[in-house]
Design a protein around this nucleic acid. Sequence first.
DNA 1: CTGATTTATCTTGACGTCGAGATACTCTAA
DNA 2: TTAGAGTATCTCGACGTCAAGATAAATCAG
Lengths: 171, 171
Amino acid sequence: MGTLEPMEDEVDRLIQAWRRERPDLDVAPMEVLSRVSRLARHLDRARSQAFDTHGLESWEFDVLAALRRAGTPYQLSPGKLLKETLVTSGTMTNRVDRLAARGLVERLPDPHDRRGVLVQLTPAGRDKVDAAMADLLTHERTLLGGLSDGDQQKIARVLRELVRPFDLEKH
Amino acid sequence: MGTLEPMEDEVDRLIQAWRRERPDLDVAPMEVLSRVSRLARHLDRARSQAFDTHGLESWEFDVLAALRRAGTPYQLSPGKLLKETLVTSGTMTNRVDRLAARGLVERLPDPHDRRGVLVQLTPAGRDKVDAAMADLLTHERTLLGGLSDGDQQKIARVLRELVRPFDLEKH
DNA sequence: CTGATTTATCTTGACGTCGAGATACTCTAA
DNA sequence: TTAGAGTATCTCGACGTCAAGATAAATCAG
C-alpha cells in the first residue's frame, strides 16, 4: 500500500512539536489554517518584490488597483477606497496624500457632496498599475505552476467556503 | 447537468471587475491566491479576538508559543526566536523587552556564549500560552466546521505544495 | 598569539497603521 | 425651519515593525 507521502514542510514541523508538547490537544486545524497564514505571508513578500520592479509599494498598488477596477473615470471616494482595501480612514488619508505627492492620483472635490472627495487615477497612475498587475499575475501563475487545473478549482471552491462567513459578517 | 454553483464571495466580485477592465489578462491565479490572502487577513483578526480573552496580543502569543513548543525548559535564544517567528532582530529585542516587563518571559545569560541570551518562559507565561492555544484551536475548529475531513486533508496537501518552494528558498 | 571575519544581540530613526476624536456637511422629522 | 442624528474626511498621538548600524564576543587563518 505505498501511499506517496508528500514531503514535509515547516507546518508539519510545527504540528509535530505541538503534538509532542500537548498530546491532549487536537491540532488538526493547523494543517489548513497555519498553512494559509504562512502562505499569505510569503505571497506578501513575493508581491512586494514584483512591485519593486515598478517602483511601487504594495500599499500603493492596493489603492491604485481599486481605482483601476472601478473603471473609467477611475474615481472613488476615500470611503469606498477604505472598504475595498480594508484599512482605516486615517490610513487612507495618509495613503492618498502620498500617492498624490507622487502624481499617481488626484484629489477632486465631490460635486454632489461638499463633505466629500473623489480620488482619481492620473494617466501615470493608470500606466503603473496596469504594468504592475500584468507582472503580478505572471508571477502568480508561476507560483501555481505545479497545480493541476482541477486542483486549483477544487481549492478555490473550498477557500471560498472558508472566507464566506467573514465576508457576510461585516454586512 | 445541474452543477450546484457555490454562492459568490468578495473575490468573485474582484475577479469579475478585473475581467471587465482587463479582458486581455488571465486573472485565474486570483481565484486561489487572492482568497488565501484575504482569508489570512480574516484569520488574523479572529486570532486577535480569541487572544483578547486572555489579555494577549497576537505578537505576544507568537513568541510564547515558540518557547512553549520548544519543550522544557522552554528556553530559546533571540536568534532562534526570530527564525521561528519571521521577524527582524530589532523587533525581537522589543518583543522580549515587553514580555519580560509583563513577567511572561525572563532573559538569562547564555552560559556557553557570553554574547548570547536565553529567553525563558515563566510559569505565568506558560499558563497563558497554554490556555490561549486551547482556545485558539477550539475557535479554528469552528471555522473549519463546514469542511469534510477529506476536503481538509486535500486542501492541506495542496497548500503544503504551494508553501514548500518558499520554505526551501530560505535554506 | 594576532588580526580579520563572523555571529549574536541591541540601538536608533523612519515609516505605515490604527483608533479616537475633531470638523464640516447632509439628512430627517417634527 | 431647525435641532439632532448621521456621514465623510481629516488630524493626531501611540504603537509595532523594519533596516541599518553599533557593540561585543567567538572563531578562524596564518
